[in-house]
């Protein structure tokens, strides 16, 4: 299963981005292979519609779970209809690596 984690930077040491639609990078972690892919978010500076556009981006990568800080109001209907799970962690200090470690320990 693939998991998307919103990140503020391009490395695993970066902190979790508290925003979903306008996060800086998506870290896509594959729980089966342990592989990691880092995608820059083209909607980072969007004025409107960043959320739905980001949903399309991660859905095209066949992601089944998204981990971020918060999700905007437009996101939940879209993700519910695509059956993608949302996880909100309201800790701005948490690093992407620690989130991946939690997922690893949970298997």
């Amino acid at each position: 299963m693939k998991v998307a984690i919103t990140s503020t930077g391009e490395s695993l040491e970066s902190r979790l981005d508290q925003r979903f639609g306008r996060c800086a990078f998506f870290v896509i972690y594959d729980t089966e292979t342990g592989g990691v892919e880092i995608l820059p978010n083209p909607n980072k500076d969007a004025v409107e519609g960043a959320g739905p556009a980001s949903v399309r981006l991660v859905a095209s990568k066949d992601v089944k779970k998204i981990i971020s800080g918060e999700f905007g109001v437009n996101i939940k209907p879209l993700l519910d209809s695509l059956k993608i799970q949302m996880v909100a962690i309201r800790e701005p200090e948490r690093t992407v690596k620690s989130v991946i470690d939690m997922l690893k320990n949970n298997q």
């Binding site: 779970k65 981990i67 939940k76 993700l79 519910d80 695509l82 059956k83 993608i84 799970q85 949302m86 996880v87 909100a88 962690i89 309201r90 989130v99 939690m102 997922l103 949970n106």
Partner: peptide
Amino acid sequence: CLFNQPEKSVTPEKCTL
């Protein structure tokens, strides 16, 4: 953490994270 369960037929028993 907060999480949702998009698959209505299953009730989660443990934290997904």
